[in-house]
Design a protein around this nucleic acid. Structure first.
Length: 702
DNA sequence: ACGGGTGTCACG
DNA sequence: TCGTGACAC
């Protein structure tokens, strides 16, 4: 009858956007766990500053407007009514005792590195018991089918006299936990003799998950919660039902009862427009309501894929596999420039772009260093607004180009992508207004981001490649920090279809094309510090290349209620004895010697070329890249990386063929030879009909 | 002038 | 293919 369309209006044009897609469910029952760290950023901060443990605490992203935005809230603070998506000021009002911790700021923007790294710590442990998919910075899915089957065959729960305390604290949907003997009931369920195979598998899964959660706690001091079920959807649905630090089991017999009254909008994928459409257009408010519709009807309304997906989830069916992937597929760095912070000059755009690119470059370096991966595509996203234009008319196109390693090159390319996008953006207005040349200068940039994608592993063993990229990185660092080292400026033309339409800001145009790089980064009229300060604080007052717009003056008056600088408080590092007993969120455990933990953490986080060489020659596992913390951690590096490439029998063939020829051209001649040799021998082994994947861009570089 | 910054994914 | 937009945390 209708399809969900972009603007929320109903039409049957096409199936559009990211609609959920049905996948067939595998025939054998799996054991899937969804594991979710509890208020993760708060825990990271509490570990860093132990005096915050047990206190109402929130992590706030500071932007000086109403005390910043909360991005994580401890359970103590939630009791006082503090909610995520409150401003810091509101939280303080609701809960005056709240401890606010700021997200670290680097290069003028929020920097989530410490949380990413903490997430990796947890993942490295969570990934040891089965296939693991890193679903977000603080969540994973585990496929524990094999481990559970093995346990059921060797040491089934009904043969155990004692079951881990943590497993006994599980919640089992369908059995009541009232009364003093809750744990006894759970124990009885876990060991039930007459249970069917599926329930016994879940029982094993629960015992395994309890064990992993304890191990995570012991080694990272982080608590987490889990859902254990036969598919991802049900596991995800229940991991949050008993938080913090608890786990929930979903026996098949309880699925119908669970879903029947479950709010449709709380289902994953249905929190947005599709869910709203189900409500308003079909009158569906719970998953149970979905059962009243035939598959055909749902497909008619939402397309074949989404329709059958909906039909399935109403019945608790979800065939999605757990992908074995521990590393992100892309890295991005971005920032919003809301309201009066909007950027109005090319110079300030360039300034922020440079910061974003530096952060991105750091992360690419770490990824190369720690995981031996290189990214192939650089993408720039921006949002713009134009005075007097509705938001939907304000589409700033995103642009991408091949990614060249080295901070200076990334900056250069990102700026070119921006300029290319800007021309297109402005061009769209020129066409629209036609005769009227009004407001050609009224653009503002309200958000910028750069991201790196198409990341593939490079063959281990070709150390020279890593060395080359790392070396280049060093070079670029020294280049940007001092001197007038000249670099060839092959003015990249990202789109290839550049018209000679003049840029709005012709001065900026001059500044950024055809000039030597050293003048490119800072306008000549300012000292670096001045530029930095003024661009950061206020677009309007900066003396940098200005477009000749007449903007209304902006009142810079600082918010008088600025938070005191609580987040950066230093805590003395207390020496702690070994094996202290601790209790966190109701789970007690023996704390690993903090010194050991810190050492380990440092190892995984610090990237050095030196370490890479040590590693690759000795295959030492002390600083294992995270992908290596898999069952095959004792194999050679190339095999240990296999989680992602496990489907490729020959770990070499895949990766080499993924190397972008355009990147090879950038390399010094010796290394080019080395790689071409590898590719040649690789191609002989591989089915010769499949050539090297053709990458876009060949035209730009000679 | 807003939860901000990231990330994944399906689709044309 | 690249670019968009929805969705999630």
């Amino acid at each position: 009858m209708f399809l969900l369309k972009l603007e929320g209006n109903i039409s049957r044009e096409s199936e559009t956007d990211r609609m959920p897609v049905a996948r067939p469910e595998s025939s054998i029952q799996r054991v899937i766990a969804h594991i979710d760290m509890d208020c993760f950023y708060v825990q990271v901060e509490q570990r860093k500053q132990p005096h915050l443990r047990g206190q109402p605490t929130a992590v706030v992203q500071y932007n000086a407007w109403k005390g910043g935005g909360l991005i994580a809230v401890s359970y103590e603070a939630r009791k006082h009514g503090v909610k995520r998506s409150m401003r810091g000021d509101d939280a303080k009002r609701v809960c005056p005792e709240i401890q606010m911790v700021q997200v670290p700021v680097n290069r003028g923007k929020a920097d989530l590195t410490i949380y990413r790294n903490a997430g990796s710590e947890a993942v490295s442990i969570l990934a040891t018991k089965g296939r693991c998919e890193r679903a977000s910075i603080d969540e994973v899915y585990l496929d524990l089918t094999e481990a559970a089957e093995a346990m059921l065959a060797e040491t089934p729960p009904d043969s155990l006299d004692t079951i881990d305390e943590e497993a006994l604290k599980s919640h089992v949907l369908g059995i009541d936990k009232d009364g003093d003997d809750a744990n006894e009931k759970v124990k009885a369920w876990l060991r039930r003799h007459d249970a069917d195979h599926n329930d016994k598998l879940l029982a094993c899964g629960a015992i395994i998950v309890a064990e992993i959660r304890m191990q995570v706690l012991k080694e990272t001091e982080f608590t987490c919660s889990a859902g254990i079920a036969h598919n991802k959807m049900l596991a995800k649905l229940t991991s949050g039902m008993n938080k913090p630090a608890q786990q929930t089991i979903v026996p098949t017999s309880s699925v119908q009862g669970l879903l029947e009254s479950f709010p449709i909008k709380k289902m994953k994928q249905l929190g947005g427009k599709l869910g709203s459409s189900l409500q308003t257009d079909l009158g569906i408010n719970t998953v149970g309501d979905l059962l009243k519709f035939t598959k055909e009807k749902l497909q008619e309304c939402y397309g074949v894929n989404s329709g059958s997906w909906l039909w399935n989830i109403a019945r608790g069916i979800c065939g999605e596999e757990v992908e074995g992937r521990l590393l992100p597929k892309s890295h991005g760095s971005g920032k919003l420039f809301s309201g009066p912070q909007a950027l109005k000059t090319i110079a300030s755009v360039e300034h922020w772009l440079n910061s974003l690119c530096e952060e991105l470059n750091d992360r690419l370096s770490s990824d190369l260093d720690q995981n031996k991966r290189i990214a192939h595509t650089l993408t720039l996203h921006a949002r713009a607004s134009k005075l007097g234009e509705s938001d939907s008319d304000n589409k700033f196109p995103s642009k991408s180009c091949p990614l060249r390693y080295g901070a200076a090159k990334i900056k250069e390319d990102a700026l070119n992508l921006f300029q290319s996008g800007l021309r297109e953006y402005l061009g769209s207005f020129r066409r629209k207004v036609q005769g009227h040349q009004t407001q050609t200068y009224g653009w503002r940039i309200t958000s910028l981001s750069v991201s790196a994608s198409k990341i593939v592993a490079i063959p281990s063993g070709t150390c020279s490649i890593t060395k080359y990229f790392s070396g280049q990185d060093q070079l670029s660092k020294s280049l940007q920090s001092n001197t007038g080292l000249i670099q060839e400026v092959t003015a990249l033309s990202p789109t290839g279809n550049e018209s000679n339409e003049e840029l709005t800001d012709s001065k900026a145009d001059e500044t950024h094309f055809g000039e030597d790089l050293t003048t490119m980064y800072l306008p000549p009229c300012l000292h670096p510090e001045d530029h930095e300060r003024e661009v950061c604080q206020n677009e309007e007052t900066s003396g940098v290349v200005q477009t000749n717009i007449q903007d209304p003056p902006y009142d810079l008056s600082k918010n008088s209620e600025d938070e005191p600088n609580q987040g950066t408080r230093e805590m003395p590092l207390l020496a702690q004895p070994k094996d202290v007993s601790r209790e966190v969120n109701g789970m007690s455990y023996k704390l690993k010697d903090p010194k050991q933990r810190n050492q380990k953490r440092k190892m995984t986080n610090e990237g050095s070329i030196l370490r890479f060489f040590q590693n690759s020659s000795s295959s030492s596992s002390s600083a294992t890249p995270i992908e290596g913390v898999s069952p095959n951690r004792n194999t050679t590096p190339s095999m240990a990386r296999s989680t992602q490439q496990s489907q490729h029998q020959d770990p070499w063939s895949y990766e080499i063929s993924e190397i972008d020829p355009a990147i090879i051209d950038e390399l010094p001649p010796e290394i080019q030879e080395e790689i071409k040799g590898l590719i040649r021998s690789n191609n002989k082994r591989v089915n010769s009909s499949q050539g090297i994947p053709h990458y876009f861009l060949p035209q730009a570089r000679k």
